[in-house]
Design a protein around this nucleic acid. Structure first.
Lengths: 331, 331
DNA sequence: GATAAAAATGTAAACGTATAGGTTTTTATT
DNA sequence: AATAAAAACCTATACGTTTACATTTTTATC
């Protein structure tokens, strides 16, 4: 890889001139500009983003971090796509870090991101008191949180109305005549789980029914816990006639268990899940689900981040997007 | 962020000494080492990976690139996880680039990766003559190809036996009594599509049947083309009684069409897809599929890359992993 | 205790860029 | 033609490391 210096020598000018040609372009003679451009082409010169980043923290290095708890979850893949599209348009590159719900891994990745001098970070923190993310925030790094905020911290956040999304789903279940509705929750410590539980509870109580804590199971937001907790539920003394699942991976796991037991959906158990997927219609049966605008979450988050990078003082925005209940055949 | 200089000043030593403490640790007095370590702790010093990379191309900067054609495809998500796990163990960070089957985007990302002075690249090239990837290869960047190679280039490759995987699936379809078996292919120009078609054709001919070109449809490896091409197939004059789909997204699209037409699987049309998914069992009906060891592909690729980075002369390896036909209810 | 060898530490240059500030050349003004 | 102003260009420095080499201090040897 050739450097500014090589180009300068070849064009017979100083490196400052070359730099000017490349960047602003002001105050440079047409003739020399042509010479420089020619040299750049001949040498296939590409500026080093590394040197650029080292040189000027002020000048944007056009690199942002994306911290994600679980890339196997299609929800985050859609968020990623949203982030990426906006980043691409604005000439930002992304370092994507999947910490797989492992806080040790998370810390390692956040350290790396800081060491890479990223301009900003989009993060779905491990939980609301995530000290790893808070540390970076306190260090002054521009951050936008996604899917969950940080308690006591005034930070840009893009979330979904989890409570209402859950409420509408469970309310629909009740109105459809289901009596014993279970909830399989994701990790208890993440806010979205809590709010979804809140919606679940409110819907039940608002309909004059009583919450049965036996019907609430807490897992880890992954496929396996969907399988197991659904099994627990169904093998109990007084099994549910409907299940509300806390995210898409859990839904898939629960479906697996239900099918293994050769139960009919929705006759034996109905199911409605949080998170829709492109292929939910091809599941057995076509799945009813609460759709989150995942792509848009990513898009908005990245827009907010780019704004914040260019204006670190702007006061934080908390953006709440709405969910939509998609009814198909599973309830 | 504090620098080596800050630490040196605080500890009352030179930056060279600090550097020595951090890196090799040879030739440094225990007492001063303690002083330095203390200063590092107090200042929460973190080395700048950027400066490190700039300084020494020789010394590994511990950053690799991962170039992926479509992150919406769960296959690549699994590859990514495999890559990541190995990278994590070996202290490498990953810049993940999803070019979404857009060669312009691909070029932009590859430029960025080069400008970031990555140590190496794991790439699923757009096709076998992918000039963007070839350029980097010619520039001497350590590269491992995944899922497809580069014609005429001697490069590390990790692939799957696509031809055999397809053969076994189609052969099974024939042995099960299906007479008119269609193939919905992914992008024609990518090798895996070609080899899968080869397996499809061979299986048909080896069973004394004849290939009907009307039953082969070429798409773009995405969900939408699965939907459309399946529709074409089923609305034809002489529709197939079984479909072999070229990848998981196509499979999902085809399923959608079949369900929309309210056809029974496998009675009206059977289907077997390339690529298994964790939740294939929950599809309607549980899907029979050719399973690729996607996670292992990623893992192996990353291992090969790390080897190559440390030994650029080692002669290239072409690694072929095997697929497995998973039989469920769709055929 | 003088000298040599080894250990400990320091100095300075380099990686590739951006840019402040200085110098030279061109253009405009009278 | 002398001068001022503007344009074009260059020099040198800084960003935070690593490392070759130089220098100083300690230890060993006689």
């Amino acid at each position: 890889m050739s450097s500014l210096n090589d180009v300068a020598r070849r064009a017979g000018v100083s490196i400052a001139t070359v730099s000017r040609v490349i960047n602003k372009g002001s105050n440079v003679n047409e003739e020399t500009r042509a010479k420089v451009l020619k040299a750049i082409k001949e040498l296939k010169y590409q500026p080093s983003r590394v040197a650029k980043r080292l040189r000027s923290k002020s000048t944007s290095s056009n690199l942002i971090g994306l911290l994600i708890p679980d890339i196997q979850n299609p929800f985050y893949v859609d968020v990623l796509r949203g982030v990426e599209d906006v980043a691409y348009e604005n000439n930002y590159a992304i370092i994507m870090c999947n910490f797989a719900q492992d806080e040790k891994k998370e810390k390692m990745y956040l350290d790396i991101l800081q060491q890479e001098s990223i301009d900003g970070l989009i993060a779905a923190p491990a939980h609301e008191k995530d000290s790893n993310v808070i540390k970076l925030l306190n260090d002054g790094l521009p951050i936008v949180c996604v899917d969950r905020g940080l308690t006591g911290k005034d930070v840009d956040v893009v979330v979904v109305n989890n409570r209402d999304g859950a409420y509408v789903a469970v309310d629909h279940l009740i109105k459809s005549g289901y009596k014993r509705i279970a909830y399989i929750s994701g990790q208890k410590q993440i806010p979205s789980s809590k709010y979804r539980e809140m919606g679940y509870r409110d819907a039940i109580e608002d309909n004059g029914m009583q919450v049965d804590v036996e019907l609430i199971k807490y897992g880890d937001s992954k496929h396996g816990s969907g399988v197991e907790l659904c099994e627990e539920l169904l093998s109990g003394a007084n099994p549910p006639d409907a299940i509300f699942t806390g995210n898409n991976l859990i839904t898939l796991g629960a479906l697996e268990t239900i099918h293994k037991r050769e139960l009919r959906i929705p006759e034996d158990v109905a199911i409605v899940g949080f998170d829709d997927m492109m292929w939910s219609i091809s599941l057995n049966p076509p799945l009813s689900a609460v759709r989150q605008p995942a792509y848009e979450i990513g898009k908005r988050a990245c827009e907010l981040l780019i704004q914040r990078i260019s204006d670190p003082k702007r006061s934080p925005i908390q953006m709440t997007l709405n969910t939509k209940l998609i009814l198909r055949k599973s309830c």
